[in-house]
Design a protein around this nucleic acid. Structure first.
Length: 159
DNA sequence: GCCAACGTTGGC
DNA sequence: GCCAACGTTGGC
């Protein structure tokens, strides 16, 4: 049984369509310790994630991705030109880890946040909780299933 | 653009 | 170790 997750990305930076095109990507640039710990310590090959578009119109769940392989050091921490460069990180002891994720599914349309909020059964979904802003968070199997069903039931274009 | 919520930094 | 100041996230 895989674990289930929700992973946020700003679609202006990297969207579900970008993942569909690239097939696999390193989930780089996460600079929050709890989010890092989830990736480093709890994510396993084959885990499934809701791909969430944040700072978007609309924000919401755009599709599904799968964790592939094991966590690896996030290369942006070593890149002096990157905004995510971390001068305190060394290759011997990298501070930031990431996972690779591969494309699984893009919903016919984004499931908007407002739609998720209307679903009584999702009341406890992490991303709906006030003040939470973690970019990587766990999701229960039940919640994952409900959101995926919602996503697949949508019609229309866009993402 | 506003602002609530939360994380991080750094003086002490 | 406390905690005020500051920075970031992200919905609206």
């Amino acid at each position: 049984m895989p674990n289930f997750w929700l992973m946020k990305s700003e679609p202006d930076v990297f969207s579900i369509s970008d993942l569909e095109r690239d097939r696999v990507t390193g989930w780089e640039s996460v600079r929050n310790y709890l989010a890092r710990n989830y990736m480093r310590d709890q994510m396993r090959d084959g885990d499934l994630a809701l791909f969430y578009h944040s700072n978007a119109e609309p924000s919401g769940v755009a599709g599904v991705a799968r964790v592939t392989g094991s966590p690896v050091p996030d290369p942006t921490q070593f890149d002096g030109k990157s905004p995510y460069f971390d001068p305190k990180s060394t290759r011997a002891a990298p501070r930031w880890q990431m996972v690779n994720v591969e494309f699984v599914e893009r919903f016919p349309a984004v499931v908007p946040l407002a739609r998720l909020r209307r679903e009584r059964s999702l009341a406890k979904l992490g991303v709906l909780q006030k003040g939470q802003r973690l970019s990587v968070m766990p999701v229960t199997a039940k919640h994952f299933d409900i959101v995926v069903r919602l996503g697949r039931s949508l019609t229309g274009r866009s993402s």
